[in-house]
Amino acid sequence: MPKFTKDMSKAVHQLKPPYRNLIIDFVEHPNYIGIRIYENQIMAMNEMQKVSVMEYLQLLRTTIESFGVKANFDGAKGDPPRSIN
Rank of each mutant, 00 (worst) to 15 (best):
M1W: 01
P2W: 10
P2M: 10
K3D: 08
K3L: 10
K3N: 05
F4M: 02
K6Y: 03
K6A: 13
D7F: 02
M8L: 06
S9I: 01
K10F: 07
A11Y: 02
V12E: 13
H13D: 11
H13K: 14
Q14E: 15
L15R: 09
L15G: 04
K16S: 15
P18T: 05
P18S: 07
P18Y: 10
Y19N: 04
N21S: 12
L22W: 05
L22E: 04
L22Y: 06
I23M: 11
I24R: 07
I24K: 06
D25A: 08
D25F: 01
D25T: 11
D25W: 01
F26I: 04
V27C: 03
E28M: 05
H29V: 00
P30M: 01
Y32A: 09
I33L: 05
I33Q: 01
G34W: 08
G34D: 04
I35L: 08
I35N: 09
I35G: 12
R36K: 14
R36T: 13
R36V: 12
I37T: 12
Y38T: 04
Y38W: 15
E39A: 14
E39H: 12
E39G: 00
Q41H: 11
Q41G: 02
M43Q: 09
M43D: 02
A44V: 01
A44Q: 13
N46D: 15
E47C: 02
K50R: 15
K50A: 15
V51G: 01
V51C: 01
V53R: 07
V53C: 09
V53S: 05
V53N: 07
M54Q: 09
M54P: 00
M54A: 15
M54K: 07
E55K: 15
E55P: 00
E55N: 14
Q58V: 03
Q58C: 03
L59T: 13
L60P: 01
R61V: 03
R61K: 15
T62K: 15
T63W: 07
T63N: 07
T63D: 04
I64R: 03
I64F: 03
E65V: 06
E65H: 06
S66V: 06
S66M: 11
F67P: 02
V69F: 02
K70T: 06
K70W: 01
A71E: 02
N72L: 13
F73G: 02
D74M: 04
G75Q: 12
G75H: 03
A76Y: 11
A76F: 12
A76C: 14
K77Q: 07
G78T: 06
G78K: 07
D79F: 09
P80Q: 08
P80F: 13
P80E: 10
R82F: 10
S83F: 06
I84D: 04
I84V: 11
N85M: 09
